[in-house]
Design a protein around this nucleic acid. Structure first.
Lengths: 196, 196
DNA sequence: ACCTGAACACCGTTCAAGT
DNA sequence: ACCTGAACACCGTTCAAGT
């Protein structure tokens, strides 16, 4: 029984929520249809987002923040040892990537776009701070070869990213089988990275 | 000095070439604009492609055929030994993926779409026949652990796919540095896969 | 401050009609 | 067989105007 003036009130939040839902359902996002569904004129979103891209960027930024929280939570729940923490990171990343496929694509597309906002870039960096630190830790613990941490992390991350994109494009099934493949990949990488 | 009737003649081929060029330039593909550029009415493409998706699928199919040729050529040029051939495959795949980023995305999107044509699916399978055979060969030669070849190839392919997507999203630079990272990744994978 | 309604320049797709 | 031109139902974006 909230009272309603002719203005909507929390339109910004509803636009974001609606857009993400459409995205998750695999549909193309039309601002006009979004406005229609929320019950507002097609020009109303303009007050909150300069254009469609601005709305997508806001969605992407929020996505990076959630991804960061997911990764940190998974790593923390895995205990203190490097290898289990790496495994948890891998699983959490692939889980996010498959559960929010369209959003993840949006996140990276937005991050890289020439005119991308700084807030988006820093949100992306923050999401990967803890995993990068974990790789450095694994090097310090002698579980992974020494050297440029970022370069080593890149190959591992690429593998996860690739597995996720293969699931999302149907080459690989999700679920329990995927979990095994991720575990395979992480162990394979850790083994390959172990100092010899 | 080719004579021209009011009909264009080889419109189908010109549509495909024009579409790929637009795609390569990173522009959004509009059928109307494409028709305009070729100098034909906006409804003319309809004679050759049922809808926009059909044109994209044709492009994707051609892409898989070219990718297959690239992969086979690179592997053949690398000699007889498994590891150099795996390395050549990796480099050729990443090269294609970075040189034809938008096309590759189209290829996989098309391949997975529920209503995808069989010709598209088989073209995709054919492109990866030789690399899959190479993995089986590497297993036979004792360079890679025995077991489900496809499952092992998946991790390797995921890594390449991931590296390519990171280059395409700007996280990783192309060029000589990329070649090193690919070599790193392949060796790391081969090492991780080597029977112990 | 926040939203509306009309307008503009685009889309993809359809279909009768032309040659 | 191959293409045209008008039409339809959509877009995203802009802007004067309303409350």
């Amino acid at each position: 029984m909230a009272t309603r003036t002719y203005h909507h009130g929390n339109l910004r939040a509803e636009l974001l929520a609606g857009a993400e839902q459409t995205l998750a359902e695999g549909g193309d996002l039309s601002l006009r249809e979004l406005a229609r569904r929320i019950g507002v004129s097609h020009a109303a979103p303009r007050r909150h987002f300069a254009d469609k891209q601005a709305l997508l960027d806001a969605l992407a930024e929020d996505g990076f923040e959630r991804l960061g929280r997911d990764l940190r939570a998974a790593m923390d729940a895995a205990g203190e040892q490097c290898v289990p923490r790496l495994l948890a990171f891998g699983r959490a990343y692939v889980a996010f990537a498959t559960r929010h496929a369209a959003l993840l694509e949006l996140m990276f597309a937005g991050k890289h776009r020439p005119g991308a906002a700084d807030s988006l870039r820093t949100a992306a960096d923050r999401a990967f701070e803890a995993p990068l630190a974990l790789f450095a830790e694994a090097q310090a613990a002698g579980e992974v070869v020494p050297g440029d941490t970022e370069r080593i992390a890149i190959v591992a991350w690429a593998t996860l990213q690739g597995l996720a994109s293969m699931v999302n494009s149907g080459m690989l099934e999700g679920g329990a089988a995927l979990d095994d493949v991720v575990a395979d990949a992480v162990h394979q990488l850790v083994l390959g990275l172990r100092p010899r």
